[in-house]
């Protein structure tokens, strides 16, 4: 019985892993294998004739470096804004008792219930009015709105995990409120806050819809590739896809522990 449950669990894990990893793998061999590999039938599952040719052609696409730069810029602004707003909000949720705290927590999650698709058009109109259309800041604002619920909830769970007495000890031994936060809470929460930053970065890096609707000439990498690659041969598309996937997967892998903590899975 135990063995049976164990193998059922293993099978589930294997299926989930295959579900995620197989497409990435196929994208990778498509990208590295060149046009022959992509169009050959039957497909070979094992990589053959790997070369970086496709990638060389990919990075030579005109405008790709500006788009990458724009992506990094938007992602960095997103990180700064989500931390600047998310960390204090998370702290408040974790430490302060105030009326409507539970409702507030729910509302934070509720913001995720509005699809960007619905918001994008009205946003484009008002952004044009505010002069935010086609700017890094404009896209970053939308990305911040997307990243903020996670930033707030992850940092709140970090702060909950830090004993209140540590803070109180700091107050007793001479710290002001902000002083105790800076000297005690922040150093202890730093790894988790860094994880939150990475998560916001990845979210912004990957987001394509808002970025595509809200920009025209200053596109982020995803939005740029969306337009450019739709006219490119398949193996170039795959190479582009691979380039987009890799940083996200790497980053998420690095911070997986904190994401588990966020979803309430004990992982220590």
């Amino acid at each position: 019985m135990r063995r049976l449950r164990g193998s059922a669990f293993a099978a589930g894990v294997a299926m989930l892993a295959a579900w995620t990893l197989l497409p990435i793998y196929l994208v990778a061999i498509g990208g590295f294998g060149g046009p022959d590999a992509v169009y050959r039938w039957p497909k070979s599952f094992w990589p053959e004739n790997l070369s970086l040719d496709t990638f060389r052609r990919f990075v030579a696409i005109g405008g790709i470096w500006q788009a990458t730069e724009q992506s990094v810029k938007v992602a960095l602004i997103t990180v700064v804004l989500s931390l600047a707003l998310g960390v204090p909000a998370g702290y408040a949720l974790a430490r302060l008792r105030f009326r409507g705290a539970t409702t507030y927590r729910l509302v934070i999650l509720l913001t995720r219930a509005f699809p960007v698709g619905i918001l994008a058009l009205p946003l484009a109109v008002s952004f044009a009015r505010f002069g935010l259309y086609d700017t890094a800041l404009g896209v970053a604002l939308v990305h911040t709105a997307l990243a903020l619920p996670f930033a707030v909830l992850v940092t709140a769970s970090l702060f909950v995990g830090i004993p209140r007495e540590l803070e109180e000890a700091a107050w007793v031994f001479g710290c002001t409120g902000p002083g105790a936060f800076r000297r005690i809470i922040l150093p202890l929460a730093l790894p988790g806050i860094a994880a939150t930053a990475v998560f916001s970065f990845v979210l912004s890096w990957n987001e394509v819809f808002a970025a595509a609707v809200l920009t025209l000439r200053h596109r982020t990498l995803t939005a740029f590739l969306l337009t450019v690659l739709s006219e490119s041969p398949l193996h170039i598309q795959l190479a582009g896809g691979f380039m987009l996937i890799v940083p996200s997967v790497l980053f998420i892998f690095l911070v997986r522990r904190y994401l588990f903590a966020m979803w309430g899975i004990a992982s220590r």
């Binding site: 000890a169 031994f173 002001t176 005690i184």
Partner: peptide, 20 residues
């Protein structure tokens, strides 16, 4: 007065020694 201005020290039940 806030705790820091009272001129006292405290030993907490769970020690509250700063881990970092």
């Amino acid at each position: 007065l806030p705790p820091r201005a009272r001129g006292l020290a405290m030993v907490f039940q769970n020690y509250a020694v700063f881990p970092h």
